[in-house]
């Protein structure tokens, strides 16, 4: 393994960016391909498929055998609102393999008794995000119903290109939200990325059922997320 490849790969992984270490098994040489890099031909297709699925493996391209070791950052879910739905969504999302965090400045809601075993930040989203911003492998579900809390998180999530952005509220509530966010300067294309009303339509009624609907929508967004649209391509 080329020491430069190792350093580059580790730097990408530590920055929570997707990367693939491609090893040519005929000559033993390797290189790191970052998500968003253009790679031509059959190898490029295999790399793109690997980045989507997260699966590593041997591939044959142009008569040469390659090993693709795919490194995806673990997906993270940040829930805005320490509410009833969040109490069901948090353990479900953890079981599905997400790192979960909750942000809610209302200390009456954000208590460890209500949310054991999960990082709970009783602060305003904008204060948390200043220190620890979202990244594209983060899903953001805004569940407070309170624009003062939800909106700053939604703006940041859309500007960051989070792979999922969802917001609780009826169509009427969402229409008002769109007005506010448009006034805040967000484009129509960006606003169209918000999943609202939140969750896959399964007729969910209880908080736990809504949590199932939301988690299903997050998983679908993660597995089908667009590639190369949020990062500038750079040569491998």
């Amino acid at each position: 393994m080329d020491p430069h490849s190792l350093k580059k790969l580790n730097a990408e992984r530590e920055a929570r960016r997707a990367a693939v270490l491609v090893t040519n098994l005929d000559d033993g040489r390797d290189r790191v391909i970052c998500e968003g890099d253009e790679v031509a031909g059959a190898l490029g297709q295999a790399v793109a498929a690997g980045l989507r699925s997260g699966r590593s493996g041997l591939v044959e391209a142009d008569g040469t055998q390659f090993f693709l070791n795919v490194h995806l950052p673990p997906p993270r879910l940040v829930v805005i609102g320490a509410v009833h739905i969040s109490q069901a969504l948090t353990p479900m999302a953890k079981i599905a393999g997400f790192d979960v965090e909750i942000i809610d400045p209302r200390t009456a809601f954000a208590t460890p008794e209500r949310f054991p075993d999960v990082p709970l930040l009783a602060e305003w989203p904008q204060d948390v995000l200043e220190k620890h911003p979202f990244d594209p492998y983060t899903a953001v579900a805004a569940l407070t119903h309170d624009p003062k809390i939800d909106d700053p998180a939604l703006v940041s999530a859309l500007q960051t290109g989070c792979f999922y952005v969802g917001a609780l509220g009826s169509r009427k509530t969402h229409a008002k939200r769109l007005d506010r966010l448009t006034a805040a300067g967000l484009s129509e294309d960006m606003l169209a990325r918000i999943h609202a009303p939140i969750g896959v339509d399964i007729g969910a009624a209880s908080p736990a059922e809504i949590a199932v609907a939301v988690l299903a929508e997050i998983i679908a967004a993660f597995r089908r997320r667009g590639l190369a649209d949020k990062r500038e391509g750079k040569a491998a």
Binding site: L6, E14, P119, L121, V128
Partner: peptide, 19 residues
């Protein structure tokens, strides 16, 4: 976010190899 130690430098083999 707050607690993110993205990778565990004491257990991650590729970080250990670099060290």
């Amino acid at each position: 976010m707050m607690h993110v130690a993205n990778l565990d430098e004491n257990r991650d083999p590729l970080l250990i190899a670099e060290a």
